[in-house]
Amino acid sequence: MTDIHVEQREPQPVLSIRQTIPVAELTQAQGASLHELWQVLQDGGITPAGAPFVRYHTFGDVETDVETGVPVAEPADGTGRVRAGELPSGRAVRTVHLGGHDRLGEAYNRIQEWLETHGTATGPAWEVYEWIDLAVEPDPAAWPSPADWRTQLIQPVS
């Protein structure tokens, strides 16, 4: 799927964990964050309002400032490292990547090409991992093959 869709987004309450970590530890840190988010949802009786997301506030060669979160229907209190926040409202473009994340750069490139002639990024993009359901305990062994992953990429724009 190579389409770019322009949309007007409403603010979305979230619970998330933001941390600066070495890029080499990214997969492990995201897994731990997903499990911690799931536990807060369970303990608080909070139902997710969609699939979890990852938003890179900065991404360097060695270190990344990454936020792993889950949308919630109503604002909810965080606990420990889990903080309440929201994904921004406003104009955004969205594309979908099908398959493993070794080729996710193709989706980022589609958005970058769109931006060159249609708009300007107004904040960090986020990836929505549609194959992960935080209504159940995260278990990578139960997830589909990466070839079957569906990831939305959303970029706020002006």
Rank of each mutant, 00 (worst) to 15 (best):
E10F: 05
R83L: 06
L98G: 09
V82D: 11
Y56R: 14
L98S: 15
E113Q: 14
Q8T: 15
P138M: 00
R83Q: 15
G90T: 08
H118E: 12
E7V: 01
E127C: 06
A125M: 14
V14Q: 13
D43F: 04
G31C: 14
P88E: 12
G123D: 04
L98D: 09
V136K: 13
R103M: 05
I46Q: 09
G69Q: 13
W38M: 10
P146G: 05
V72K: 08
G90M: 05
L153M: 09
G50F: 11
L26E: 15
V6T: 14
T151D: 01
W114C: 13
R83Y: 07
E113V: 13
R9T: 11
Y129W: 13
A24Y: 03
Y56N: 11
E116A: 12
E7M: 08
Q12F: 00
Q19T: 15
R9D: 11
T64W: 10
S158K: 10
R110D: 00
A147P: 07
R83V: 11
G85F: 08
L104D: 08
R18D: 08
E63L: 09
T151H: 10
L115H: 03
S89M: 09
P138D: 02
G69A: 11
A92N: 10
P52L: 06
T79R: 14
A92R: 09
Q12C: 15
P88K: 11
P140S: 08
R18T: 13
H5G: 00
V14A: 07
A32D: 12
L115A: 13
E63H: 13
G85V: 11
D133N: 12
P88T: 14
W126G: 07
T58P: 01
Y129Q: 11
R103L: 02
H5V: 02
A29I: 03
E25R: 13
G123I: 02
V66C: 06
V40F: 00
E116P: 05
G99V: 07
G119A: 12
G50E: 01
V93Y: 01
V96H: 03
L153A: 07
A135W: 07
L87C: 02
V40T: 10
P75D: 08
V54R: 02
S89T: 05
P48G: 00
P48E: 02
P140G: 04
T117G: 03
P144E: 07
E10T: 13
I132V: 14
H5I: 11
Y129S: 00
P75H: 03
D65Q: 10
I17R: 10
Q155G: 12
L153I: 10
G44P: 02
R150H: 02
P52M: 11
D65P: 08
L15H: 08
T68V: 09
D133G: 08
A141H: 07
V54Y: 06
A51E: 09
G119N: 00
V14I: 15
Q12W: 04
D3V: 06
T64A: 15
D43C: 00
G45V: 11
H57M: 07
E25P: 01
E86A: 15
E10Y: 12
H57L: 11
A51K: 04
I111N: 06
E127H: 15
G100Y: 06
Y56M: 02
G69W: 01
